[in-house]
Design a protein around this nucleic acid. Structure first.
Length: 436
RNA sequence: GUCCCCAUCGUCUAGUCUGGUCCAGGACACGAGCUUUUCAAGCUUGCGACACCGGUUCAAAUCCGGUUGGGGACGCCA
């Protein structure tokens, strides 16, 4: 394939805020299109607004993209290209297509022609505008920095961008840009305006309508591939009723021209479900690596921790958590030095005196040489029979004694994971509760 | 106010281009059941939509027009 035939797409965030859900999805579609077509994916930082652009936002955007696995092939900064924009503006001035503001501010404006402009959108089909209805556009501001529409067109042309994939909130910018392309004599790229992601109440996603920053989802314990999977499903479908799909598997199936026209509402429930699917699908070791920061936050995984113990506790909850945050939270009672009884659980199951039952269990568990779930269950059932009580009668109080909670993993695997020492110690502690 | 976009279950979507195979399929959520020592997970199952009106056609979710509803843009922000 000839180099010049390869498509080139770009994602052009502005470092005046964090990377949010909508931006990440736009980036994802660009990335997928580039990879699907074997083209190049350009990242262009639109930092022309000197006052609002911040290094911390830039770092955050780059970090989020990396975390999501959306790698770029080329990186540009508009702040380093002001010279280029001014040169093109001068050319338009010389050709009489642009003029200087009459207020003497030094701004340069483009004359809008009286004509119809037409977008041939890859998703929407033809869209017509009357350019005569649009007022003359500022190209260079009085501080000599370029406006968005001007820098965008100059760069897309100079960087040989062939397909512009962006949110459909940009549709009304497109006729303005098309006029600039024409004035400059540049060939126009193809446009694909993808639908926006709306918040729960309709309208743009906002902090009110839920989390928007990608870093926030990371902090909540979402897995990057799960988030990417969910974002892919907003406005696109891999077909065959498939819902769980990796970035890798999506690449050969993706084509932006098959994207939807309809805006999608962000649904946290479905994201949570997908995240749970990914957590359950992870091998224990890599999952532990990803969970460590969340455990550390709770003071639960310092360097003294027994890694094998961490892993076995994690396996107990892999099926039960929908986020890493939840996973860490569920693991806490088993990793903490002391059990913290849930007040309601304690009230319900540790208020009657089970000293006789617990001491027998403690003795039988203590005698066990093979401390594995099947053997534990055996001696437990034997003890219950000997005491003349149902297993239910013992299991619930025992669960509270060992975990502080009424809900959790199966009793016998829980005991095996805890190990003999911890189990005996926790039963002993529960018996002290009976005395008070 | 002007311009633009959109319209299938509550939500994400398949189907729309190339009208019949769709009394509309899948997923999330929700309800019921199974499993069971609890909670999850898993499995089975139920509920649930072509916005409305008109036209074209033997036939329309699919094509056309209008209405209504929702969204977006109208910055020397990006």
């Amino acid at each position: 394939m000839n180099e010049s035939n390869k498509i080139r797409v770009r994602f052009a965030p502005s470092p005046t805020g964090y990377l949010h859900i909508g931006g990440a999805r736009t980036c994802l579609f660009n990335w997928l299109q580039a990879r699907a077509q074997g083209g190049a994916f350009v990242l262009r930082i639109e930092d022309t607004d000197q006052a609002r652009s911040k290094k911390e936002f830039l770092d955050e955007i780059l970090e989020s993209l990396t975390w999501l696995g959306l790698n770029w092939d080329e990186l540009y900064f508009q702040s380093q290209r002001f010279e280029v924009y001014r040169n093109y503006a001068t050319r338009l001035l010389d050709e009489g297509k642009a003029y200087k503001a009459e207020d003497g501010s030094g701004a340069v404006l483009l004359k809008m022609p009286q004509k119809n402009v037409r977008i041939d959108d890859m998703i929407h089909g033809p869209i017509q505008f009357d350019a005569g209805l649009i007022k003359d556009q500022v190209l260079i501001k009085s501080d000599q920095s370029p406006t968005y529409n001007f820098a965008c067109v100059v760069d897309d042309a100079e960087m040989k961008i062939t397909h512009i994939i962006r949110g459909d909130d940009h549709i009304s910018n497109t006729p303005k840009q098309l006029v600039i392309y024409e004035a400059l004599g540049f060939a126009t790229p193809r446009f694909a305006h993808i639908p926006m992601i709306l918040g729960k109440e309709g309208g743009r996603m906002s902090k009110r309508a839920g989390a928007t920053a990608i870093t926030e989802y990371r902090r909540m314990g979402f897995l990057p591939d799960a988030l990417v999977n969910y974002l892919m499903l907003l406005g696109w479908s891999p077909g065959n009723n498939q819902e769980i799909i990796s970035l890798r598997d999506a690449v050969p199936k993706f084509d932006v021209k098959n994207a939807n026209k309809t805006a999608a509402t962000f649904d946290m429930d479905k994201l949570l479900w997908i995240n749970g699917q990914y957590i359950r699908g992870r091998q224990p070791e890599p999952l532990l690596e990803e969970a460590v920061p969340f455990l550390r936050e709770r003071g639960l995984a310092d360097d003294n921790f027994d890694r094998n113990f961490l892993l076995s506790v994690l396996k107990l909850f892999r099926e039960r958590a929908t986020t890493l945050q939840e996973l860490a939270q569920a693991m806490e009672p088993f990793l903490a030095k002391e059990v913290v009884y849930d007040p309601a659980a304690k009230e319900k199951f540790l208020s009657q005196d089970l000293t006789r039952e617990f001491s027998l269990l403690r003795q039988r568990f203590g005698d066990l040489a093979d401390f594995a779930a099947p053997r534990i269950e055996e001696v437990f059932r034997a003890a219950a029979a000997e005491l003349g009580v149902t297993t239910k009668h013992l299991i619930h109080p025992l669960r509270v004694a060992l975990s502080g909670k009424t809900v959790g993993p199966g009793m016998f695997e829980l005991i095996e994971t805890l190990g003999k020492d911890r189990t005996l110690e926790r039963i002993r502690r529960a018996m002290e509760v009976f005395k008070t």
